[in-house]
Computed example of a mutant assay.
Amino acid sequence: MQADAFEKRPSVAERDSFVLCVDVGNSRSSFGLFAWDAGAQDEPLARWESSTLAQLTSDDARLSLLQVLSLMGSDLGLRAGELRRPRAAILSCVVPSLVEVWVQALSRVCERRPLVVGPGLKTGLKMRYRDPAEIGSDRIADALAARERYGAPVIALDLGTTLNVEAVGEDGSFLGGIIAPGLDMGARALSQDAARLPVVELGRPGAVIGRSTREAMLSGIVLGEVARMEGLVARVQAELGQVAPVVITGTRADELAELVSFEAKADANLTFRGLHQLFLQNERPAR
């Protein structure tokens, strides 16, 4: 992260207590650090992202956390060891086998056992889902943050291993959404299941009509994803019966927000902000 992004932040003495938001996805794990007394609309002081490992011990996760916190401290312009360990943490993990691994690691790195997004945690969202226990923790965070930042109704798209589309109704309730294969999954499927097709590095296609196999694949993968996003959003808007603001987060959110035909806001910190709001709603920090 760029040092100038933190020039107006409080001094080290003023930011010595933190809340760590951890979002463990199927492919990537993301970490966002918030000031202890930050309000619900505040942005993370620092963030980091790494690959999610399928096999992980609590010691592995703890080592990863210590490395991430050290790198975050460096991004904040702090010397080694100057960043104090977080006072608290909140965890969103969509990989069931890794939940307790990360809980144990966070309990050892932070001053207290982390909150875990799931049944029993207050969300502040009225649920229209048939079984709220089925909803992924990242989906809840996205819907909550989208409503708080962009109002209701609102549609949130999260681009990751899966493409998640969340719909919040005019009354602020969580209506449900859509889960579809994600951009990277589509790219891998093409190269794995078609013997003559190579792995391509994803990026913005220069044209719709590709003049090589790689260009044709890039167009099909990226613009195909754009077309799917446009079609799904149009159908959700129609079912809502009105045009709702659309926010896009996740991998390549900025690029795809520029390619879709509808107006959309790219928000890299949407999930982090939602996790932090969930923390505030369930454990109000007190000095």
Rank of each mutant, 00 (worst) to 15 (best):
L125D: 08
L218H: 00
A145I: 05
R211W: 04
I248G: 09
A266K: 05
A266L: 00
V22F: 04
A38M: 08
S191K: 08
A13P: 04
L240A: 08
A257R: 08
N164T: 15
A89T: 08
E43S: 15
P119W: 05
W36C: 04
A257M: 07
A5G: 12
P198V: 08
A5T: 08
G77P: 07
S29P: 10
L121M: 08
V200W: 00
Y129L: 12
A189R: 01
A286T: 12
A264Y: 03
L280K: 01
L65E: 02
D4L: 10
D60S: 10
A180M: 06
V199Y: 12
G177A: 07
L98N: 06
P198S: 14
G220M: 00
D254C: 05
K122Q: 12
P245M: 11
R188W: 05
M185E: 10
R149F: 09
A244Y: 12
P10T: 09
C110R: 02
V94E: 05
L66I: 14
C110V: 01
F18Q: 04
A266R: 02
E239V: 08
S64H: 13
R214M: 03
Q237G: 06
L278E: 00
V109Y: 05
G151A: 03
V165N: 09
R287L: 14
V246T: 00
C93S: 05
